[in-house]
Amino acid sequence: MNLITPDTGLLFWMVLIFGIVFFILAKWGFPAITGMVDKRNEHISESLRLADEARERMSHLAEEQKALIAETKAEQSRILKEAAQARSEMLAQAKADAQAQTADMIEKAREQIANERETALRDIRRQVALLSVDVAEKVLRAKLDASPEQQALIDRYVDESRSSN
């Protein structure tokens, strides 16, 4: 019976000691430990979350970078293409312009030449006419007087020569 009868003395001490131990540990022992460990656990999970986010952002960043590079490349090739096109267009334009100008100049030159020839021909003709008249005067003065028949003949000849020209 001794074994299963709670002894009042031990009961008394047990309540007292356990109560004191519980009071001390509940006040200065466990909360300090569990509080710190809980804080650390929170810190760890928070850090993990942040690291995860950072990793995700990093992967996004890489993707963005890749996209940016691709975009830049596309832009570059587009600009190059445009430049090439512009160059060839400009060349073609310049060529066309030059041709047009040349043609214009040639045309003008030709006109001028024609005009000048005309003028020259007229001059020459007048000279020739004068010369012919002089020559004829001299020839006829020597041989005949200036009869009306003679004058008519000369005119006819001159006209003939002009029309044959």
Binding site: P6, D7, L10, M14, F18, F22
Partner: peptide, 11 residues
């Protein structure tokens, strides 16, 4: 000892 465990259980 039953006194000890009884105290704990009573707590």
């Amino acid at each position: 000892n039953i006194a000890c465990t009884l105290t704990l259980a009573l707590f």
